[in-house]
Simulated assay, not measured.
Amino acid sequence: MRLTHPNGSTVHLAYCTNVHAAEDFAGMLSQLDRFAVPVRDLLGVDVLGLGLWLAAPVAAALAADPVLRSRLYREMTVRGLETVTLNGFPYQAFHAPVVKHDVYHPDWTDRRRLDYTLDLARVLTDLLPAGIIRGSISTLPFAWREPWHPSRLSAAHSMLKELATGLGECDRDIRVAMEPEPGCVVENTDQAIAALAGADTDRIGVCVDLAHLACAWESPRDAVAKLTAAGIPVVKTQVSAALEVTDPKVSHDTLAQYAEPRFLHQTRSRGGAAFDDLPEALESTAPGPWRIHFHAPLHQKPLPPLQTSTAVLEDGLAALVGVCDHFEVETYTWNVLPPAARPVDDASLAAGIAAELAYARDQLAALGVS
């Protein structure tokens, strides 16, 4: 959706299609009809924004074939869909039975990651609607933290230099956004600033994922102020909410229903305890409060007595409006929610996504963006 900031600039709001499992071109087109068009209809908008996720083989095929790119643009346009942002964090197989640490491979020391990201940039160049100023691509924050050493950091920095060069060769302004995430080499704002020291900030910046920021127990206003002072642009914002629990002992059995086998759910306590996955946290005696990297639906409450970090989300939007113009709702966990909260069919998933976008739109409207 295209919204308007009080200063007259355009603000884009989209939902991320990494919630859908399609990893070939035909499957991607099918998901437009199964989900994106019904979401658009439920919201009553003429054009719906998508944050497309393209698995690496699809991205490579599109990057190599301008006719295929033109077809995708037409297929989206006739359905009232558009994209200004791509999610380039998962490389492929994001809906395998077990993803866990695989989502961090290949990392930014591996040329496949560079090639994939440049493929996405070539694709986005042709998908951007006319008159749009720029496009964005979010990516992983270098790598999972282990193993990591200076030689790998040097390799990653070399890849970023090649990335900036490649982005400069695009016909449109495409920027890449590193997304800090718990457990990674870059987990918080200070680490992001250090990681991007010397980077080409005209083309490379940060993606602020508000669930990740909550898990780092960071203040959104402080994070944005630090990035601004360091001259690092917030290229993209992921409008997301983490699970939150005050007393893990009391909530143990309920939390256990969110400990599912596909994704990592890094858990952080306000007191500094850190766990790479929720089952590990549940075996601990670390006191609360905890925040858990489980992207919860924005508009609905989780199983009681759990909460979500929507207070951080709302503070984050207030800090980021006017700083960032690409906002993406990224709840990829709909199909791994506890059964009682999980969509039962395509229609209920579309309804849930539409409700999330309506929630995000309302939050932005309260800040004068409508």
Results as ranks from 00 to 15, higher is better:
Pro141Asp: 04
Leu160Lys: 06
Val206Asp: 03
Leu210Tyr: 11
Gly198Tyr: 11
Pro147Ala: 11
Ala256Pro: 04
Pro180Arg: 06
Trp144Asn: 05
Lys161Thr: 14
Met159Thr: 01
Ala241Ser: 15
Val239Asn: 04
Gly231Trp: 02
Val239Gln: 03
Gln191Tyr: 03
Arg203Gln: 08
Thr228Ala: 14
Ser136Asn: 00
Ala225Glu: 12
His212Val: 02
Ala195Leu: 10
Ala177Arg: 10
Val186Lys: 02
Asp209Lys: 00
His252Arg: 15
Val250Cys: 10
His157Leu: 13
Val206Met: 01
Pro248Ser: 08
His252Ile: 01
Ala192Glu: 07
His157Arg: 15
Ala194Lys: 12
Ala242Asn: 00
Leu153His: 12
Arg175Ser: 11
Tyr258His: 11
Ala177Trp: 06
Ile204Tyr: 03
Gln257Gly: 10
Thr201Met: 07
Gly135Lys: 03
Ile137Ala: 04
Val208Ile: 15
Ala155His: 05
Ala143Ser: 14
Asp209Glu: 08
Trp217Leu: 00
Arg203Lys: 14
Pro150Ala: 06
Val245Met: 04
Arg203Trp: 03
Glu187Ala: 15
Gly183Val: 06
Val185Phe: 11
Ile174Trp: 05
Ala195Thr: 09
His157Thr: 13
Leu153Met: 13
Lys161Val: 15
Trp148Gly: 03
Thr246His: 12
Pro220Ala: 12
Thr189Asp: 01
Phe142Arg: 11
Val245Phe: 07
Ser136Lys: 02
Thr246Ala: 15
Ala211Glu: 04
Asp200Ala: 07
Leu210Asn: 04
Glu187Phe: 01
Pro141Gly: 05
Ala242Arg: 00
Val250Leu: 14
Arg221Glu: 14
Ser219Gln: 05
Gly198Leu: 09
Met178Arg: 06
Ala197Cys: 13
Ala197Glu: 15
Thr139Val: 15
Leu255Cys: 04
Val235Pro: 07
Ser136Glu: 08
Ser151Trp: 10
Ala195Ile: 10
Pro233Cys: 12
His149Val: 02
Arg152Ile: 06
His212Leu: 06
Leu140Ala: 08
Gln191Ala: 15
His212Ser: 02
Lys161Asn: 13
Leu227Thr: 02
Leu210Asp: 07
Cys170Glu: 11
Lys249Val: 14
Ala199Gln: 05
Arg221Asp: 11
Val208Lys: 00
Gly168Leu: 13
Met178Glu: 11
Asp222Leu: 08
Phe142Trp: 12
Gly205Asn: 03
Cys184Lys: 00
Asn188Val: 09
Leu140Pro: 06
Ala197His: 14
Pro147Phe: 09
Gly198Thr: 09
Ala156Leu: 09
Val239Gly: 09
Leu140Val: 13
Pro248Asp: 00
Glu244Lys: 10
Ala156Ser: 14
